[in-house]
């Protein structure tokens, strides 16, 4: 039977199975969302696997927060699906929320209440949490819970949201730029906490602009651009498909490098008693490049995989990076 227009139908394999862990913590398929004439999500796909810390990268306005708000059931998708442990994020948002905790990017607290009151209210409204864990986190994040939240800095407001969310023992944590206001010491405390969650088999979707944080914590990364995923894979695989830097000092100049189709940024400098050569090469020609290098009597060699920063920039460069990065 054809469903009435506008009614949402979830494919059979994505329907609720009452076995949360049998489903992916997050699954987004062909999600589209428009705000007037602006397309925020344009067929976006995302999967977060159990026990995975998944980095979610993209510049401002790329669609990260829209995705997270759709996952929370705050926005109704125009088409496509978003599920949390198999529960549809719009029609079964309450069931989905039993499995998650959330830290918003822009933390708005009740100005007349103290930080401690806000934590307790948020914890109670999200179904309760451990008071022991709350105390630990308040101490770890060095938060004064007696201050009125209107006197808090951005970082302290962020700490309140983090303590409230992380006090809940759940299977999935949705963190939308959770450390944007934190100092380096608190950033380290945050990373330690996420590592503990990972060891406990929890899943984390971490939206962030801090690439070093994502690189340090995440197994898997999705890069979003104009509402579409332009890269989504493990960091190792992403690196394996991207240009690598080779810096080598040889006795003699290396011959035949110009044969490499993916060769870029080649520099050759005298480095007595030999020659220093530096270039970028694509993953398909890495082995061939190394064999050419080895023929030049190597004194010293470094092969640098691309940093996350380079992966991110590659995904956003004007060239055909999408073909190279999307699996």
């Amino acid at each position: 039977m054809t469903p009435p227009q506008g009614e949402r139908v979830i494919p059979t394999e994505m329907r609720t199975m009452n076995r949360p862990n049998a489903e992916l913590p997050v699954r987004v398929e062909q999600l589209r969302k428009k705000f007037g004439s602006t397309t925020a999500l344009d067929g976006f796909n995302l999967q977060v696997r159990p026990g995975e810390v998944h980095g979610f990268l993209g510049p401002n306005g790329a669609g990260k927060s829209t995705t997270i708000r759709a996952l929370l059931g705050q926005l109704r998708p125009d088409s496509g699906w978003a599920t949390i442990f198999g529960r549809d994020c719009w029609s079964e948002s309450m069931a989905a929320h039993t499995h998650l905790a959330y830290v918003p990017g822009d933390v708005a607290l009740w100005p007349g209440l103290s930080g401690g009151e806000c934590i307790d209210i948020l914890v109670r409204l999200q179904g309760g949490g451990s008071s022991k864990r709350r105390r630990e986190l308040v101490e770890r994040f060095d938060l004064d819970p007696t201050k009125r939240t209107r006197t808090y800095s951005k970082g302290n407001r962020q700490k309140v949201a983090l303590v409230a969310a992380l006090s809940k023992d759940c299977d999935l944590y949705l963190l939308d730029e959770p450390t944007s206001g934190l100092d380096p010491l608190m950033e380290e405390a945050f990373q330690q906490t996420v590592r503990e969650l990972k060891r406990g088999g929890k899943s984390v979707l971490l939206s962030s602009h801090i690439l070093s944080e994502v690189e340090a914590l995440c197994d898997h990364v999705t890069i979003i651009r104009s509402g579409r995923a332009v890269a989504s894979d493990s960091l190792d695989d992403l690196r394996a498909r991207t240009m690598s830097w080779i810096t080598v000092t040889t006795d003699t100049e290396i011959g035949g490098l110009n044969r490499l189709r993916t060769l870029k940024s080649l520099t050759v400098q005298p480095h007595p008693p030999g020659v220093r050569t530096r270039f970028e090469v694509g993953p398909d020609e890495l082995v061939e490049a190394l064999s050419l290098v080895m023929a030049g009597r190597v004194r010293r060699i470094t092969v640098e995989p691309p940093s996350l920063n380079e992966l991110f920039l590659a995904a956003y460069s004007e060239d055909d990076s999408k073909k190279a990065l999307v699996t």
Partner: peptide, 23 residues
């Protein structure tokens, strides 16, 4: 100067209605 507030929320502040009344 703002007076310090309580370390935690009182016990009755457990429901959305209580929150709304408090606000």
């Amino acid at each position: 100067a703002a007076r310090p507030g309580p370390v935690g929320a009182s016990r009755w502040l457990v429901s959305p209605a209580a929150l709304m009344l408090r606000l």
